[in-house]
Amino acid sequence: MWAYIRFELKNTLGYPIAMIVGGILPLVLVLSNYHATGHAALDQATAKGVFVTLLPMVPLGLVILPFTISFARDMTSGITNRLVLFGYTLTRQLLAKFIAVLLLVLSMTTLYWVVLSQMLPLPKLSLLALVMIYLSMICLAGGLYLLAFAIAQVFEGFNMIQGIAMLCYFGIAFTTGSMGVSQVPAGVTQLSRWIPFKIFRETLRAQWQGQQLAGFQDELLQMGVFILITFALYCLAKRYRRLKKRPV
């Protein structure tokens, strides 16, 4: 299986859009949004603010856009089916793709943390907070991955899926406050609350040097709910696809 995961890793790395949107863009946005005032406490708070605000953009950028588009392309051109005939069931393909994209998310998270720790006046993270960052990234990557798969299964055609993926990417980014605060209808705001970006930011900001797991309890709970919801969407999308494709 490792050889196949390596294949999927190289395949994912082959999409420059993934590295730009998920790797470089969050870093650029952090650095362009941080302005030093000369006041140490204020600068530290600002640095923490931009750090936590844009960190969820890493899994969002690495999963939603490149994965959805590459998976749609694979489905349209018959690559998915070709791999099934080589013995890689859809579940195995998805698992390998997820491990590949997760490795990228964790690598980019590390890069984000290391680079910004050097460039911004960030206070030292507690070990627990650091572990929780990685755990949250895994949860977000998992949930967004399931959502991306659901999009690729429900919609037909490469251009349509690409359009929906972009809509989701920018929609999530704007409604969760990752790209500024936007005036959106109340219903959209309610919907976006199920995407646990806000609680992740608030918890990390409050528990930056936290030593108690209890401080992360609510966030973990909401991450769990997010995964459950996206898993339900994944199952529905898979069932929808099966019913639609099933020969009579």
Partner: peptide, 26 residues
């Protein structure tokens, strides 16, 4: 083992990566 009329693979990787990845070998 099946050879289809049309067989496509990702354009992002080399043929060696395709061979190694799909045949699970080096």
């Amino acid at each position: 083992a099946v050879h289809l009329q049309e067989n496509h693979y990702p354009d992002t990787v080399t043929c060696q990566t395709i061979l190694e990845g799909l045949l699970q070998t080096t």
